[in-house]
């Protein structure tokens, strides 16, 4: 199964469960930055619908095998079910539960509905500003590269830098933002 076929299955499962969602992670970063390969599809899903996550996992069972172990995201405190596609290649699927983290709530409220020809459907994506803030917050090497790429491709002059700076101040990631901006060569 290709990554796009898996993404279509995921989106169909979440939509049919009536759960609000958006695509995050490397796929979202690739939409606004420099496209690169990824091993996973990550969805941020709303916890508004009781039993929503369980319903999504159940609908995905024919294509994704989820771990039984419950794992929590230490930044946003939400549950994070992780699975692997049952077919090859073994793509990883991560579902991030949206709880009460103020930034994640803002990110979700600002999500955009975008038609993706490769998926033959529209789907929900964060804004580029929110991808940058979240990637700086995670702060791993690959996240910082993604943040720098989105800043460079979208251009600080076209981004809402006040919004980005405000969240970076709240997250204590201003230095990471400055480093990312300094890493962009003159274009």
């Amino acid at each position: 199964m290709t990554l796009e076929a898996l993404a279509i299955c995921l989106i169909a499962a979440v939509e049919s469960a009536g759960v609000e969602f958006m695509v995050v992670g490397a796929v979202a970063a690739g939409a606004y930055g420099v496209p690169h390969s990824t091993r996973d599809v990550d969805l941020l899903i709303s916890a508004k619908v009781a039993g929503g996550i369980a319903a999504v996992i159940g609908k995905l069972d024919p294509v994704v095998q989820f771990d039984n172990q419950i794992v929590f995201d230490t930044l946003t405190r939400g549950r994070r079910p992780v699975g692997l596609s049952r077919s090859t290649p073994p793509f990883k699927v991560e579902l991030f539960e949206m709880l009460d983290d103020p930034f994640v709530k803002s990110e979700f409220a600002r999500r955009q509905h975008v038609f993706v020809p490769a998926l033959s459907r529209a789907t929900w994506l964060p804004t580029p500003e929110d991808v940058i803030v979240q990637k700086l917050r995670w702060g791993r090497s690959k996240d910082l590269d993604d943040a720098c790429d989105v800043l460079a491709v979208q251009s600080p002059s076209a981004l809402d830098m006040a919004y980005i700076q405000n969240w970076c101040m709240q997250h204590g990631t201003e230095k990471r933002l400055q480093t990312a901006l300094a890493g962009i060569p003159p274009l």
Partner: peptide, 17 residues
């Protein structure tokens, strides 16, 4: 955005190969 996403999918499938 659509073209960049198409590249993400293509590169990812290729990487696993």
């Amino acid at each position: 955005v659509a073209e960049r996403l198409a590249d993400v999918f293509e590169l990812s499938n290729h990487q696993f190969g």
